[in-house]
Design a protein around this nucleic acid. Structure first.
Lengths: 353, 353
DNA sequence: TTGAAAGCGCTAACAG
DNA sequence: CTGTTAGCGCTTTCAA
């Protein structure tokens, strides 16, 4: 098939047409490049007739303005880096999805950085905002790419985790102390007094806070805190399973477990089943997150829901406000959590195995 | 605190320093802009001494080259659009993770497009490669953004699903017919003869192929295909649960179910438990994918594993090869699948409820 | 409402 | 090994 385009007395192949720029369109349409630019970006500033001419010319040769030139001129890429430790984790994926939605609604795109918790990769993604490949960054992990420019508030950054106290950075999060307390109180109210804890990595701020909440609830109930009841692991199913094996070995008559994440709970549930423990008849299990699969577990998980969607949406909008120089009033926003009572927790009964 | 920088007899504030470009660095280092560029991009082409001078100057003022200028000049953004219907789906998230990894390894970044199966969003993401915001696109869904330029092979595109036959587009996938056949044969070998099917959306090519495989296996076993045994739903847990409710209502003594996705199976499992069906003692359940949670289900799922990691890695590398003009030899690559026998399937036993 | 013209920051010939 | 120079494609004053 023959394909060509006649422009200004010369014949262009399809491949050449693909390379046309705004000046070529101006030529074809018989207007200036500025007018073509306006026709695309601020159509209302161009007369109907001129606009039609431009659009027709563009359509004929299949022209779409390159965003590269615009980005360079404006010094903005309209990309935003979103950092997660693992996109595969059902706690993070809805957050990222909400961020992508919110970004799109405001004309931005998401550069996904799955860092696997690797500081090198975090740093290299952070560099993208220094090098203008992105206009800002959202961190969904506990570590900050330690670059002064972010702290100096020269580069837009938002974090969805508490990190170490850092008043210079905008943060959206939840009240992990309250969450830890709430979950513990639920178990306490059911009559459980010896509650094993399966925490994520010890150094994580969120884990420390949740444990603090646990201790607070215990103290209010006049129950001594027993460090031997807390097991540190990772936020994953496999490691949760391992922790459960340790627990049942250490404390065969354990009546309640509080894990710091649904993913961990799924591993625990798996082991408990294998060992023929009845949940919740013999062991109660509560956790945090309310990932989408929590309600489909056997039994459905009682858990403290985190507002993943709001978290994603709000933090993205906060970042974009920052980028667009509409700084939000508050540096730290705490979102509401909620206890979801399902079937993995039940009344304490003295043990009869 | 006072912060300033003395350059060429003028005092610069920290904010001004952030705006320095390659020419300023050249000035400070006493070399040309070209040399600065080389020092960063091809250090081996610059003498040790000059390189040190440049790097020192850059470090002193915290300079990082802007990728915007480079992109414009080179006509490449080093971004790649990855389209998924839903990043929250545990089938897609490992694929995306693998893609991100592979992209990074070759100096590219991933622009995540969570399309929610919405054609408008697919189209708007596809436009990003026309507008050079991205250098190529990978489609993980069954629909193609119908833009001629992709078909004409002017724009780099790779698909991980079979779509409608399209020889012009590079595709990486699995042999869904063989997968459907394999799963069915497993059930058949266990003595099951009435096998209910829970498929995803009927129009999906992958579903049609899997069903075809099911029919093939049945035919080879001389069992007549009964259309009443196939239930169409979505690839989700909630809809899988609904399908299961219909099945047990329609066929209370069903002995085997073949669902087209682990996510569906989790919903089915949930309902089966609620209805007090024993899996696999009374009903066997097999599916496809082997998502990470499949082994932690109660009981652990027998399933045909899909090579999500390889799928992601290979398709990303194929796309980048395309972008870098090293066209791969084959247009269609089929990856190996594997039956993973766990505990959700068992020998057929006549029904005693 | 439209046009002319000056860059945005970088790269890549080409020349030395 | 290093410097000069001409753009890449677009936006944006400023002037008409």
């Amino acid at each position: 098939m023959l394909w060509f385009m006649l422009i200004n007395h010369s014949i262009l192949s399809r491949a050449q047409v693909a390379k046309l720029n705004i000046n070529d369109i101006a030529l074809i349409a018989g207007v200036s490049n500025a007018t073509v630019s306006r026709a695309f970006r601020e159509p209302q500033k161009v007369s109907q007739k001129t606009r039609d001419k431009v659009m027709l010319a563009a359509k004929n040769v299949g022209f779409t303005p390159s965003s590269l030139g615009a980005s360079l001129k404006q010094g903005r890429s309209y990309n935003i880096v979103v950092l997660v430790p693992d996109i595969t984790n059902p706690y993070f994926s809805p957050i990222v999805r909400a961020m992508e939605q919110a970004a799109n609604a405001r004309g931005y795109s998401v550069l996904l950085g799955d860092t696997q918790d690797c500081p090198d990769r975090e740093r290299s993604y952070a560099k993208m905002v220094k090098s203008k490949q992105a206009d800002g960054i959202i961190i969904n992990s506990q570590r900050l790419p330690l670059d002064l420019d972010f702290e100096q508030e020269l580069l837009p950054i938002v974090s969805t985790s508490e990190l170490v106290e850092n008043d210079r950075i905008y943060r959206i999060g939840v009240d992990n102390i309250a969450i830890g307390k709430l979950a513990t109180e639920h178990l306490l109210a059911l009559g459980h007094t010896r509650i094993a804890v399966v925490s994520g990595n010890e150094p994580l701020r969120s884990c420390q806070d949740r444990l603090l909440g646990y201790k607070l609830a215990l103290a209010e109930a006049n129950i001594a805190f027993d460090p031997a009841l807390v097991y540190y692991t990772q936020y994953s199913t496999a490691t949760g399973a391992k922790a459960a094996e340790k627990i049942v070995a250490d404390i065969p008559n354990i009546s309640a477990i509080f894990s710091f994440g649904d993913l961990i709970s799924i591993g625990i549930l798996h082991v408990l089943h294998k060992m023929n423990y009845q949940v919740p008849q013999q062991v109660s299990l509560i956790s945090i997150d309310d990932i989408s699969l929590a309600m489909y577990c056997t039994p459905p998980l009682t858990t403290v829901a985190q507002p993943m969607n709001t978290l994603g949406e709000l933090s993205m909008n906060t970042l974009i406000d920052l980028i667009e120089k509409k700084p939000p009033e508050r540096k730290l926003t705490l979102l509401a959590h909620k206890l979801i009572c399902r079937e993995s927790t039940g009344q304490y009964k003295p043990y009869t195995r």
